[in-house]
């Protein structure tokens, strides 16, 4: 028999992520997995499934719903949670706005507004560890964040005072009221995520694949037409074949022109693409060079 004594890069990344998830399950009192129905959280859920089989996933899912989500993503979220028999907790940004916890400014994306709702939910349930699907290749503030990222009692990240993270001996300890954000797929790239989706034959919401959609062009980006985005005077709508690289707030998540109809074709396209995931698809990240860093410091994902 031939012995393979090396893991592929994807096997190594999978092993690292499973190790991290098990470490949280072993050491944290009350963990939760932040779940959006997007591709990164779908990969996270598959990793959690593999980590704990034949047992059940030993933590619930939490979705911070902006109510600006694509309806097909929400449907997909519910279906998947149901299939895996995991408890899904949903807390809504709209409820926080109605309760006066958040004041929404006109034309503001709801991505930023999620922070208050998220921190309120963490306090409500007393979570001491929240898994997130953030990747270090997404953005430069993320590139400096630890896998186990400490948050103080206000949910804040202090980039200048992070815990050293040596080998893979993770320090999971927090005081009451503080918590950890844990990023098992920190070291994955967008391409790794798609390769994993392909290898594991994971289902993702259909809008990740090429489909016809009505869009308008605004500030050099394509915006999907919906009840939140209506053409302004002078803007023309057009029907073209697109796909989404990320799924977030419908009012600011832009599709890219693509013919890729399955994971394999996306891998080929991603391997050749010359624009970063966030640059292509998130209008709110273009606002300032440091916008993610500022949001993270306040407690964002």
């Amino acid at each position: 028999m031939m012995t393979f004594n090396r893991l592929t890069h994807l096997e190594a990344l999978e092993s690292e992520a499973i190790h991290i998830m098990r470490e949280v399950a072993a050491e944290c009192r009350n963990p939760v997995l932040l779940f959006s129905g997007g591709k990164d959280s779908i990969v996270m859920l598959r990793l959690a499934e593999k980590a704990f089989l034949p047992g059940r996933i030993p933590f619930p899912l939490l979705h911070i719903d902006t109510e600006h989500n694509f309806p097909e993503v929400i449907k997909f979220r519910d279906k998947l949670a149901n299939k895996l028999k995991v408890k899904l907790i949903v807390r809504s940004v709209q409820d926080s706005i109605d309760a006066g916890r958040i004041i929404e400014k006109p034309n503001q994306s709801r991505n930023t507004l999620q922070t208050t709702t998220l921190l309120d939910a963490i306090e409500e349930f007393g979570f001491d560890a929240c898994f997130g699907g953030a990747r270090r290749d997404e953005e430069k503030a993320r590139a400096k964040e630890r896998i186990f990222s400490f948050r103080d009692e206000f949910g804040q990240w202090d980039p200048r005072n992070q815990r050293p993270e040596l080998w893979d001996l993770y320090n999971t300890r927090v005081h009451p009221g503080e918590h950890m954000r844990v990023f098992p797929i920190s070291n994955w790239t967008e391409l790794d995520v798609w390769q994993y989706i392909h290898n594991e034959q994971l289902e993702v919401p259909a809008l990740y694949y090429a489909h016809e959609r009505e869009v308008i062009e605004r500030n050099g980006s394509l915006l999907p037409v919906s009840h939140l985005v209506r053409p302004k005077p002078g803007e023309l709508t057009q029907r073209i074949t697109v796909r989404f690289r990320t799924v977030g707030d419908m009012s600011c998540t832009c599709p890219v022109i693509s013919e890729a109809e399955n994971a394999n074709e996306i891998i080929l396209e991603t391997a050749m693409t010359r624009i970063t995931e966030r640059g292509a698809t998130r209008m709110d990240d273009k606002t300032s060079d440091a916008s993610m860093e500022l949001r993270k410091k306040e407690g964002y994902f």
Binding site: D137, A141, P159, S186, D289, E293
Partner: peptide, 19 residues
């Protein structure tokens, strides 16, 4: 260059990961 403070001061504060 990563964080805002680093860009302002032209220094590197912490370990950064690249792929």
């Amino acid at each position: 260059d990563g964080l805002q403070a680093e860009r302002e001061q032209g220094i590197t504060i912490d370990v950064a990961y690249r792929y």
